[in-house]
Design a protein around this nucleic acid. Sequence first.
DNA 1: TCTGGGGTCCTAGGACCC
DNA 2: TCTGGGGTCCTAGGACCC
Length: 441
Amino acid sequence: MRGEASVLHLDLDAFFAAVEQRDKPSLRGKPVVVGGVGGRGVVSTASYEARVFGVRSAMSTREARARCPHAAFLSGRFHAYRDTSDRVMRLLREVSPLVEPLSLDEAFVDLARSDLEDLSVPSVTAFAERLRERVVHATGGLTASVGVGTSKFIAKVASDLDKPDGLVVVAPGTEQELLRPMDVRVIPGVGPATAERLRRVGVHTVADLERVSEDEMVRLLGKASGHWLYSLARAEDDRPVVAEREAKSVSVEGTYDTDLTDRKLMESLLTRQASDVSGRLRKHGLSGRTVTIKVRLHDFTTLSRSTTLGSPTDSPGTIGRLARSLLADLDTSGGVRLLGVGVSGLADWVQEDLFGETAEDEEEELPEVEVPHHSRRTWAPGMDVVHAEMGRGWVWGSGRGVVTVRFETADTPAGPVRSYSMEDPELSPWRPDESEPAPPA
DNA sequence: TCTGGGGTCCTAGGACCC
DNA sequence: TCTGGGGTCCTAGGACCC
């Protein structure tokens, strides 16, 4: 905790929805919901017009539709969000070299490293107001809520106090009186589970929490959380603003509209995910030693299995092979709703292959295939898995704009199954009056 | 047809080593 | 017959964040 309010937290208001409203004037003033539009999608961001109807982040899209049927439901344009976010982060870096992005729409800025010499409350307030105006200008009209305080914790709490389009500067020395009446959930790290544990011992507010001894807190919540909460309850937070943080893991996962039961299909999907992970590792010059798969069963139980190599890899073949072998040990007979692949234990170098590049280490090229028009019509966004005959292969559709084509060639009836996915925005919308071909046997 | 995706951090137990 | 103790690595699961 510093002597002056020099930590700034900026949060773009209803960011994804605001970008959509900026780019599509017809959506302005109307409820907009960005998130998964499939059968198992959840809301990522709701515009303030949609929040009036009780639509919230992390709510299932199904429920959001029930609450606000007339909202525009959009699946998101991440390039546009990334682009707008970059503009904001660039602007913040003009203000201070020490900017810590937390996500596309949030960042801490260390004002102690800015050109602002006078860190008094009036000076910081005027500075933050100017910054908010510059954000509006830089983004083509998006507003931001800003909080400033003597620590990250206080700055973040402050930015939340006057949303949207607000500014709160917490004067040094007033932190505890601000926090005491607040719910314990304002403390970062206190989620539903911790809040429930605290509630059971009669702790609801930060003031309640302040009365609990450090030993008691550690007994209740474990070492790390106990000490952490003990400090934050007293507004003690010395975490520095850190500009560069290295990635610790890279992962890809997907939830399917219909539970998967076909092991061959699961293996195909893992293979595809492994290649996506590999691509992202390579793009950033990374490789990792630990490969993990994540499997969520039909009843939402979530399993993970991992294995660690002697040296790091970024090879799609290696990652895919390990992922498939980890899956082999799991009982998925009840159906699988989510599959994922991740790599951790990252190093910014790849082990030199002492024996030279081996061909089998790379996944073989998947075939380029033309998806015939008749199969496109059978695809439906958010619908159950769709099967369509297609020459010697057949098409499975799952998830918006993604078609997975799977081949079982006539000459190798029991041979290897290969698959690839393609994204095709033209595949929607689905026209329900059109008949579907029968699924393959 | 409740419950995304991409992350981080923590805990606890077992293996293994000295 | 006894059965310490610290450190590190690995695995699995869970809580949490945006």
